[in-house]
């Protein structure tokens, strides 16, 4: 099983003030109160963590964490 989801959760814990048990794969970013600036910040940290490139709209407010995992896993590792 992929470790993408737990790694994504760890980014939310380390940089965005969440506790591990505060998020589920079904939560959308807007439900987690991550606004557009926070999503750009998250995009930067995800790129660094996973060594991938994301476009500005790869992570959207209405996306769930589960959907974000799929987006991350669909990107080729570039770094």
């Amino acid at each position: 099983m992929s470790d993408t989801y737990p790694r994504l959760v760890q980014l939310l814990v380390k940089n965005f003030g969440f506790e591990t048990d505060e998020v589920t794969p079904e939560d959308t970013f807007s439900k987690l109160e991550l606004d557009s600036l926070a999503l750009v910040e998250l995009t930067l940290t995800v790129q660094q963590e996973f060594g991938i490139e994301l476009s500005d709209d790869d992570l959207g407010a209405d996306d769930t964490l589960g959907q974000a995992v799929k987006v991350i896993e669909s990107k080729p590792v570039v770094a």
Binding site: N15, F16, G17, F18, E33, L37, A38
Partner: peptide, 12 residues
Amino acid sequence: ADKAIGRRKAWR
């Protein structure tokens, strides 16, 4: 800061 003003806001 996490304790003083909340960890979900402090990082901003």
